Amino acid sequence: MTGLRYVYAVCRPFGTPLQAELRGVMGAPPALLHHHGLVAVVSTVPEADFCEDALKAHLEDLDWLAATARAHQGVVDALTTVTTPLPLRLATVFRDDSAVRTMIEAREDDFRRLLDRLHGRVEWGVKVYLEPGAAEPEPAAAARPASGRDYLRSRRRQSHEQEERWQRAERFAHRLHERLAERAEEFRMHRPQNAALSGSPGQNVLNAAYLVPRAHSEEFVELVDRTKDEEAGMRVELTGPWAAYSFSGEVSGTSSAEGSGSSSGAESGARAGAESGARAGAESGARAGAESAAGPGEGR
């Protein structure tokens, strides 16, 4: 069976070995490809599953996409414990090791610049949700509005109360973000998640990523924990530490001269699925990736 080289990330050489039992995409163990003082973390995947036509079909298969996303993220997570990786997009593949080396040479300056900037730093994700309001009981027959005017007045009151809750949530999210941004070196504001795709209850008010030095991560986490109960009806979710996905877009956001295969939508699906940890979350992340995928390619 013909194999392609799947690339998870690029990093500098590191001395601590990865776990012997670590497995990547399609169950293949990751390997280290050294070139020009950099390391590409790779594994071999079947061409039948990762050629261009096959990837287009797989992007519609939520189970396959979710499993691939989890395996990809598992390797990146393992790397994050021993070094600072630059994650590449989900399903970045090349014809062989020679093509991977060519990619490294073409992007060498970018890789080194980003590795210098991100060294010793991790990404933390923070989301704020406005919890669903308690459903009003169905009024008894005797308590039903006496007229259409009373009914409209009641509906306006409910709408006003919902608007007030939303404004309060936005103010809370803004205050929290300002505090966290002061403790972070950089931040990225992401589009609020669609509840139908994420599977999380409530309305997503804040969806942000923060770049934090490892040495200051404990303080950052404590700050988030202290604010969780400040406002009733709000839910704060903290995820991480992650590799700096949101801050290495210069790498994952463009294709190499060799035509590295991936889609930005698929990568966001990988993140969403990996953050959730559960099957339902992985599938919702995969669905988001599939719906926004620009279309895969293949390194030659």
Results as ranks from 00 to 15, higher is better:
residue 95 R to P: 03
residue 113 R to K: 13
residue 87 P to W: 05
residue 176 L to G: 10
residue 191 R to S: 08
residue 172 F to G: 03
residue 169 A to L: 05
residue 122 V to H: 00
residue 150 D to E: 12
residue 106 A to Q: 12
residue 183 R to L: 15
residue 167 Q to C: 07
residue 124 W to V: 03
residue 77 D to K: 05
residue 86 L to C: 11
residue 181 A to D: 05
residue 121 R to V: 01
residue 116 D to M: 08
residue 132 P to N: 13
residue 93 V to S: 03
residue 76 V to K: 08
residue 191 R to W: 02
residue 163 E to R: 00
residue 85 P to D: 02
residue 183 R to Q: 13
residue 108 E to F: 11
residue 104 I to L: 14
residue 179 R to D: 09
residue 149 R to Q: 13
residue 166 W to E: 00
residue 132 P to S: 07
residue 129 Y to T: 04
residue 69 A to N: 04
residue 142 A to M: 11
residue 134 A to E: 14
residue 169 A to P: 04
residue 166 W to K: 01
residue 133 G to M: 02
residue 89 R to W: 10
residue 99 A to N: 05
residue 70 R to A: 13
residue 76 V to I: 12
residue 76 V to H: 04
residue 191 R to C: 01
residue 93 V to G: 06
residue 149 R to G: 10
residue 126 V to K: 09
residue 166 W to P: 00
residue 165 R to Y: 00
residue 195 A to W: 07
residue 143 A to Y: 10
residue 169 A to S: 09
residue 72 H to T: 04
residue 158 Q to V: 02
residue 67 A to E: 12
residue 148 G to E: 14
residue 197 L to T: 12
residue 146 A to D: 14
residue 86 L to S: 08
residue 126 V to T: 07
residue 71 A to R: 06
residue 122 V to E: 00
residue 96 D to F: 08
residue 90 L to V: 06
residue 96 D to H: 04
residue 143 A to V: 07
residue 125 G to M: 02
residue 117 R to D: 10
residue 111 F to C: 15
residue 149 R to Y: 10
residue 158 Q to I: 01
residue 147 S to T: 15
residue 84 T to M: 07
residue 105 E to F: 05
residue 94 F to H: 13
residue 153 R to H: 14
residue 91 A to H: 12
residue 126 V to I: 11
residue 119 H to R: 12
residue 89 R to F: 09
residue 154 S to K: 11
residue 167 Q to G: 09
residue 163 E to I: 00
residue 70 R to N: 14
residue 84 T to E: 05
residue 112 R to L: 13
residue 169 A to V: 00
residue 134 A to R: 10
residue 120 G to H: 08
residue 82 V to M: 08
residue 128 V to G: 03
